[in-house]
Each structure stands twice: as C-alpha cells, then as structure tokens.
Design a protein around this nucleic acid. Structure first.
Lengths: 205, 205, 205, 205
DNA sequence: GATGAATGAGCCTTCATTCAT
DNA sequence: TATGAATGAAGGCTCATTCAT
C-alpha cells in the first residue's frame, strides 16, 4: 500500500531538485559563483544544461537556492539543539556545537556560505531579505538566551545582540581554522575551546 | 634637508601606482572582483586601460596588489601600536583598537579585504603565501603576547594561536556590524566591548 | 440526412488541426515567426507541446500550414466572387473587394501573410512552390480577366500580368493602411478608392 | 596640404562604420534579421566579433543603422529628383523612377527594406518613430504634389495621402517583380509601365 | 610611456525537437 | 494519442588582454 503521499511528479521534482542543488553546492564550493558554470553544475548532476533551467530560472537563483537550503537546515538544527538545552551555558554551548558539527559534515556548504558572507558587504542588495532574516533570526535566538542570562545574573551585563553575533563570528572562525587545517583538534576540543573562551574570557581569575 | 633619493622615474612610478591602487580599491570595493572591469579602474584613475597594464600584468595581480598594500600597512600599524603598549591587556586592546580604527578610516579597503576572506576557502591556492604569511604574521605577534601572558599567569591557560585568531575574528565581526549599521556606537565603545568580551568572557564572576 | 462520411479519426484530426492552426495564426501574428515559440502555440491551443508535433513535423511546417490555410480560402473566395461578376470592371472590383473584406475579417492572418511577403525575397527557396503557385494563381486569374478586357478594348493595352500584380499590391497596401490606422474610412470607401484609382488613374480626363 | 577636415579618428570611425554597415546590409539581405549572426557580419566585414560591438551596441541597433542609412539616402534622392521636375506628371514620374533605379542599384538594401516592411505590422513598436517618419516623409512630399495637382485640376479629385501611398506600393511591387525575375523588362520600361498605369488607369478612354 | 581600438574566448540562456510514459 | 521532461546546439554579448601608433 503506497502511502508516500507524494505523486510521481513530486518525486521526480524532488529528485531533480536535490540532485541539482547538491551539484550546485559542490561546484560553487569548488569554484565560487563566478567561475562556476551552469555546465559544471549540469555535468556534476549528470544532466543536460537545459535541464537545470527547468528547475531554476537563472544561475543566480540556483546559487541562492543552494545557499538557502543549507542555511535553513543549519538554523533549524541550531534552534532545535538550543531548545533542548536548559541552562544558559548549555544553550550557548549547543549553539556552538551545532554549527561546528553542521559545517564539519557539510564542508562544501560552508565554503559557499562563507563566500557569500564576503559578498554581503559588496552586494548588500543581493543578500536578500530572506538571508539576512534567516541569519539574524538565529542570532536573535541566541541574543534572547544571552539577555535572559544577563537578567538572571548568570552572565555579565553586556550587549546581547553584539555578543550573539560575536559568538557566531568566533564559531565561524574556528570552522575556517579546521577547514584550512590550522586546527587539527577533534571537533569536540574546538567546540570546548570556543565555548570556554567566550564563556570565561582570556583573563585569569 | 631631505633628499628623497628618488629619481623622477621612481616618482612617476609611485604616482601611477598609488593612483591605480587607489582606484582599484574603490572599484573592487564597490563591485567586487568579478563585476569590476579594468575599464572601471582606469576610468576611476583617470588613465587609459592600457596604462593599467603597464603597471600590473593582470586584473588578478592588480587586485592582489591593492589588497596587499592595505594589509601591509594594517599589519604594520597594529604591530606598532601593540609594541607601544606594555601590559598584555594593553597589547590586546591595542590590537583590537588598531584594527577597528584602521578599517573605520578605510571602509573601501575593508570590503575588499573581507570579500577576499570569503574567497580564501574557495581558492586557497590564490590566497598566496604572501597573504597568508602577512595575515598569520599579525596573528602570530598577538599569539606571542598571549602565550607570554599565559606563561606569566596573567591569562588563563589556552591555545594561544587559536585565541589570537579568535580575537581577529571578533574584531573583524564588529567592523562588519559597524559597516552594515547594526552597531551605531562610537568606535571607542565597540573597541571596549570587544576587549571586554574577550577579556572577561560572558560569565558573571 | 447528411452523412459526413468522416470517421471519428478524421473528426479528431480536423478538430486538432483546426485548433492548432488557429492558435498558430494568432501567435505568429502577434510575435512573428522567430519570436513565437511552439510552447506559445500549444498553450494558446490548450494542448501540450508534444501534441503539436503529432500534427506538424516542425515549427516551419506549422507556419506554412497556417499560411497555406489562409491563402487557400482567400484565393478561393476571390475566385468565386470574381466568377460571379460579369463585366471586367465588376470582376476587378470583386477581386479588390474580396481581398479587403477577407483581410478585414482576418487581421491576424493578414499579419502573417504580410510578414511572409517580406521574407519571400530573403528566403526564396522557402517560399515554396506551393505558395508561389497559389499566389500566382489568383494573379493569373485576374490577369486573364485583364487580358480579356484588353482584347475587348474595354481596357487600355497593357501588360496584363504586371497589371494584375499591381492591383494585388494596391489592394494589399490599402489593407495595411487600414490596419495601422492610416485609413479610417469604411471598407466600402477604401474598396471604391482602390478600384477608382486603378480604373481611372490619377489624371483628369 | 591636407584639407580633409577630418581627424584620423574620424576617418577610422567612418571606415569601420561603412564597412560594418555594408557587411550588415549584405548579411541581413541574405539571411534575414534572425538568421544572421553577428559573427556573419564580422566575418563579412573582415573584423572580429567584438569589434562590431565597438560601433553598434546590439544586433538590433546595427540592423536599424543599416536600414536607416539606406532609407535616408533613398528618401533624399527621391526628394531631390522630384524637386528637379516641374510638372505634376514629371514629379510623379521622378518619384517612381528614382525608387526603381535606387533599388535596382542596391538590391541587398531592398531586401532588408522590404523584409522590415513585413515586420512593421507585427512589431509596430520597433518600427520606431524615425523610420515611420522617414517613410511618411517621402509619402507626404508626394502627397503634396498630388494635392497640388488636384487643386490645379490636373488630377482627378482623390485622397492625396492614400494615392501617394498607393504609388509607393505600386513602385515597390514592381521592384519585387524585377528582383524575383517576373519582370525582365529594362528598368525604363517598368518605370513607364508603373507611371502609365497609375496615371491613366486601366480603363480605355 | 600612454593610449584605446581590436581581438576572441567564454558563458548564460533559449527553445525546437525528441521520447519515455 | 497525448504529455511534458529532457536535451544540447546556437548565439548575443562581455571584457581581459594585446599591440600598433
């Protein structure tokens, strides 16, 4: 008894979409947006060039779709893991761990994500609302946690939003270090390092 | 009486070089590497397209030269200001202040610098030795300070190199916030915020 | 009781053929041959793209079929109306009136027809025998009438074939004027104008 | 003593412009707008594809430039020759002769001109103001002559504008006949035929 | 040195046509 | 028969780079 709930059309659509997005992620990660060609993506996906255009109307849209797909699940995952933690410390730890682990498993996506970061300043208009919203959303969730911690005196009084973004920066930075090979420590250690650093600061007590 | 010791040839060379680099920085900042054209740069510099090629062999080299010029003075400035500070805390503070102030005064350059950061992962080969060296150099100077502080028990025991890179990440992050307008605080306040955060951490004592 | 003598197959064939041809005429009229797509035609006809190919082997053939269909009935109509007139003058008048009225009622078709006229010189090979034959056929019918009129001294001695083509040109020209709005006169008046002009010439007696 | 009054730049500009326009006319005449490629034009002109774009911003603009160049001189020539004739009959004759002779010497251009005619109805917006103006201008000059003739009772009373357009249609028609080989008569004879037909009409006196 | 006209490789995108279902 | 997803050839246009003046 087929209870997939999906029509065959939907299955094909998802199959293609997934394949193309997957190929796009890999190609964009390897070459960057401009040096990647639709032919590269098509070849990688094992389909013809024109087929890509049946699913995405332009190279730019394909890029955004690939980016969005990764960000959405990243944000979801981080939110989920944070919500499962109870203390402020655990939530901050969960945020850091979630992102490092996510990118550890999706290095290709991280490259695309990180590159888009670099472009954000140059082409702010293109980093459309949706991405900014998505990005700010997770920062805001973290900021709330921090604000709550401050209120409860678990944290020092500080600008919650800026602190949240700082944590995201630190986390991203350590992922880069892992990717370029400057950090060969187990992910667990790096997670602990980042958490420790941001939690206790540099200073000796 | 200062005798520059420069021949006329050298003066012209520097004049052109400066003008082209200046134009390049502005154009690359505004459009990004790929969307910028050599014609844009030439027009901005007020010279002919061919002239650019008399001083830089390719668009890529021009880009790197513009990037390098900015990084070199940034690193020099940071090193100088750190050397003038005496305590570990002051040196860390000097590093942060130096970079925030430098970029505050050179927003165009920061955009180019930041964008290249995004590309670094995608094109590691192109982020040539020199940039990596330059970048790592300043991190290493900071790392030494941190290592020294750890040895003297002024800082908690931690991975000095990673901590140094983390400080650089945090600093860069706050510059971005300032650029996109998420932080409207005076530079002084942001400098203090970053220093404070990294020095004391989040946790309440 | 009329027994059409048509099998169901033939009925379907005609139904599809008519629908496609109808859509083709409208689409080609609106966009021209090159800018029209098979998808446009299929959408307009309310069928799938592939279905068009079940009835016409190529876009070019479809175009010709649409053109031919219109020309055939146009020629038939002109021939019929001319045959019902008795005098030379009436026959010439019938020719003019028939064409102006025909196009008046089928503006879409006229656009396709007129556009093909422009292409005829550029792609003479494509203006296949059939169209040339069709086109020349009606001209020849008219030429015979003129030749007959000349023989009977009802008309001045002149090259009958050229005169026939000239009448066709004049008629086509007035249809264009009506279409672009340069002539807002009732069709009757324009028919009279063309007939009058070609019959009496410019000169005052 | 060089008194060309042209700078070298202007000479080069004109040389290229002429060469490209010439090639464009030939290519568009041979293949039609859509089937002609910029590469075709460049090859015919003996230059590289990119060079075409240094002088014309798009294929469409190049086409219009080629069309305009021909129409302008055609209209000028017709106007000049008409102005040199004194009687109404002579002016009408001059108009017809001028156009037939012009196209006789520029068959390539006529094909482009005639094809554009076919497109005019389908893409009225593209048959920009300038062409319509140019085309109507010559018709209006002729219309004035006719109106004047009507006033002086040299011509029968008739709609001058429509008559002028009719003469243009007849003339264009005979050029087509000559081009496709349906008329092998000397140009002089065809000119006389058209003039005679339009002047006296079909009817025997 | 300085110029800018010329070059031509390269790529996104369209769409007629095919064919498995 | 009907469908529409898939194909891939083709072409307009850009722009880094060259080189004659």
């Amino acid at each position: 008894m087929t209870r997939t709930g999906k029509t065959k059309k939907e299955v094909v659509l998802e199959f293609r979409t997934t394949g193309i997005l997957d190929a796009a992620r890999r190609v964009f990660a390897a070459k960057g947006f401009h040096d990647a060609t639709i032919d590269d993506v098509a070849d990688t996906a094992g389909i013809a060039k024109g087929t890509v255009y049946l699913y995405y109307p332009s190279k730019q849209e394909l890029y955004w779709a690939a980016l969005r797909a990764g960000i959405v699940t990243m944000v979801e995952e981080a939110a989920r893991e944070m919500s499962q933690a109870s203390t402020v410390a655990d939530k901050v730890h969960a945020f850091i761990a979630s992102k490092i682990n996510y990118f550890e498993a999706r290095k290709d996506f991280f490259k695309v994500y990180f590159a888009e970061f670099g472009n954000a300043l140059t082409h702010p208009a293109e980093m459309q609302r949706q991405f900014k919203q998505l990005y700010l959303h997770q920062a805001r969730v973290l900021a709330k946690v921090i604000a709550e911690g401050v209120r409860r005196k678990e944290l020092r009084p500080l600008r919650a939003e800026s602190a949240a973004l700082a944590i995201a920066d630190l986390t991203r930075g350590i992922v880069v270090q892992r990717l370029v090979g400057w950090s060969k420590a187990p992910a667990e250690d790096d997670i602990q390092f980042v958490f420790d650093l941001i939690w206790k600061g540099l200073a000796h007590r």
